[in-house]
Amino acid sequence: MFNNFFHKMASPRYFYNISGQLIPWLAAACMALFLAGLYYGLVKAPPDYQQGDSYRIMFIHVPAAWMSMFIYVVMAVAGAIGLIWHIKLAEVMAISSASIGASFTFLALVTGSIWGKPMWGTWWVWDARLTSELILLFLYLGVIALYNAIDDKRTAARAVAILALVGVVNIPIIHYSVEWWNTLHQGPTVTKLDKPSIHLSMLIPLLLMAFAFKLYYAFVVLMRARCEVLERERHTGWVRELAETK
């Protein structure tokens, strides 16, 4: 039965139909979480005693940064599954994740920089976390550029899977090396973005936003994957029928 389920899930048509039913629910849950997170984050949580109200940027910056790493790992795992078991759907998931991950990385970078302005007095500091995010953005852009450069999309997806796997081995090394470099070149005087202990009134909106971002990724990756499936299956009967009825 288990095997059967996976076989069914891996069939593009089945995936297209099931994900179509799933997306509205995920989107609704995501909206609800976002609204709750915004309410608790912007209205309920008190201002920070050091940073005032500027710390509220954290409720976007930190979830975006978490998701940027998480999505890269998902992309590599999906790519590996696609490479090893030749499951096309996993390849589709991997490449559909790339642009979402890149946009979260971009968001984490820009919000980090905007948060840095009132904290550090400049728009950009070579802080370990921001520098890691910058390199992560380059890794994502490499994946996207490689995918777009290869004409045959199946080959492209497999090449991207290899690149994502190489990247995922390197991310911890890059992260560690950047942290190490940062402690050498800058004293501990710089205010770190994260706080050692976080009050419950700030933790609740942070977790709400983090879950909202996760659900957001879930439904957007399904939307992208559906497009990718349509594109790949455009010459099959069911896609042509579908196009007729729309």
């Binding site: 500027s54 919000t111 905007i114």
Partner: peptide, 19 residues
């Protein structure tokens, strides 16, 4: 936003646009 309106709302606005 306690004087941080520009930074906070730019961040949230940008997030909204990207999402």
């Amino acid at each position: 936003m306690g004087g941080y309106a520009f930074y906070v709302w730019t961040s949230y606005g940008l997030a909204l646009i990207v999402l």
